[in-house]
Design a protein around this nucleic acid. Structure first.
Length: 292
DNA sequence: CTATGGACCTGAATGC
DNA sequence: TGCATTCAGGTCCATA
């Protein structure tokens, strides 16, 4: 589930709440994709300064060191606000809703693989498939972290994502544009869904080789990537508002995909049936009429 | 260096 | 109903 918008929404849901917290203990479930890289007990007493995002990684800055979190395919984070329990809060910031009665913090479940207990609440990673990861590094430029972060492309919503360098980078790649977007070494953040959606918005065929894309169409794609991701964040933010007092386990925002998952259904623009194909083991959806 | 395919896991949906 | 197969929002790594 987590592409850039979901990761960013997750970050916003707990970053301000956990900032300033002191780690009391760490509990682990089954192994995630990589080992933590530090003895869990060695984290106790450290201060959480804040939480940033880079691509689909969350970077939790500590007073000493940094924790990288990745949600993989099926990961989710929940933040349990009170020491003894309470509903998980993933809603955007204050004002806090009135406190319901306090149930006990539930024990780690079958799919809970990481828990950070702090004096400001408890952060839990639930990840059935365990493609996610939590990795400690002394600094983000030092090894376990640097290795994971160094190849990442531009941040789509930052100013350094400019059309010029985007076009220049695409011009170097012969792979199909969809794959180039997915790889994330040019621009990060668009996963399988948003890559399809952005290409639809830009009117570009996913199979088109990246280096054949003209400057003008690169411009359109640049805009499309930004808009698709930014809109998803906005929408997620608004639907997560009631997410907190419903239930932390319940769905993300409902996605308004124009092509993803719509094989055989009419294109919302021209009515032509949406097609599905396979690119590098992933499903791609596109409109053969609107995307050339 | 780029491009491709396999690997890692579990659970839900589909097919016979 | 039961069991096998396919698919799922990611990305690292080995191989050409």
């Amino acid at each position: 589930m987590p592409e850039l918008p979901e990761v960013e929404i997750t970050r916003r849901g707990f970053a301000d709440r956990i900032a300033g917290a002191h780690i009391q203990s760490v509990r682990l479930g089954q192994p995630l994709r990589w080992p933590l890289g530090i003895a869990p007990a060695a984290l106790t007493g450290r201060l959480v300064r804040g939480v940033r995002r880079r691509g689909k990684y969350l970077l939790m800055d500590l007073d000493h060191g940094v924790l990288l979190l990745h949600l993989g395919m099926s990961g989710r984070l929940h933040f349990w606000r009170d020491l003894e329990g309470d509903v998980p809060l993933m809603a955007p910031l204050p004002p806090l809703p009135p406190l319901p009665p306090l149930p006990l913090l539930p024990p780690l479940g079958r799919h809970d693989h990481f828990e950070l207990r702090t004096d400001r609440g408890h952060l839990r990673l639930t990840d059935p498939r365990r493609f996610g990861a939590v990795v400690y590094a002394e600094r983000e430029t030092a090894d376990p972290a640097a290795k994971l972060l160094h190849g990442l492309g531009m941040e789509p919503l930052s100013d350094n994502f400019d059309v010029q360098s985007f076009y220049a980078a695409l011009h170097q790649r012969r792979a199909p544009i969809k794959q180039v977007l997915l790889t994330g070494d040019v621009v990060v953040g668009a996963g399988n869904i948003y890559a399809c959606e952005a290409l639809f918005a830009a009117g570009i065929r996913p199979t088109l080789r990246a280096h054949r894309i003209s400057r003008a169409r690169a411009q359109r794609l640049h805009t499309a990537v930004r808009e698709v991701l930014a809109r998803a964040i906005e929408r997620g933010g608004s639907s997560l508002r009631d997410f907190a007092h419903v239930d932390g386990q319940l769905g993300y925002f409902q996605l308004e995909a124009k092509v993803y998952g719509r094989a055989g259904q009419p294109c919302l623009i021209c009515g032509t049936p949406i097609r599905q194909l396979r690119q590098g083991q992933r499903s791609t959806f596109y409109c053969p009429q609107c995307q050339k």
